[in-house]
Amino acid sequence: MARAPVKKQAVVKTDGAERRPALAGQEASATGVSVTVLPPAERISLRGSEASRAALSKALGLTLPQTPKTSAAKGKRAALWLGPDEWLVIDEAGKDPLADCAKVSALHSAVGISHRNVAVAVAGPAAEATLNAGCPQDLSLAVFPVGACSRTVLGKAEIVLLRTAQDAFRVECWRSFSDYVFTFLQEAMRDAAA
């Protein structure tokens, strides 16, 4: 049976204005799968040609992946290949990748998008089925292994999907789509568990 989503205190204290992330702390679960809104993270959209990859990798402390649909991770920082000159860099330890890239003189574009995206974790043996309610990609382990990532769609929203473990995924979407994505995943979760 599915549990109704839990609403937690939706406030993160900073020294200035209060940060109010979308859907903060919400989670829901059913047999074999849970859907959890993840805490805020630092993120940049990083663009640059192959010539700049080494310098950017060095500054970020991880090797930016070259291969489509792959990601690289070091500690709490991950870089997801989204396109031939595009990476989504996510830092869950609060260390700003924008500042790291600012030091790089090699040609690139780094744009802060920490607040643009909301992340949802989908975990459990039924995670794959939950996502396949709206994601048309083949998410089997052989085709979409741990560490695989892709921009794709979930129902009528665009998402970035990252497989974090055999039965766990991170779903990133734009802030105003998070309501839709979270609601969709909850409904899909119930069906995947059924």
Binding site: R20, A22, A133, G134, G155, K156, A157, R175, S176, F177, D179, Y180, T183, F184, E187, A188
Partner: peptide, 15 residues
């Protein structure tokens, strides 16, 4: 299938 009610179309709201 899922595309009905609140899932018919994403409803986008600002912060």
């Amino acid at each position: 299938n899922h595309a009905r009610g609140p899932l018919f179309e994403p409803t986008r709201r600002t912060a």
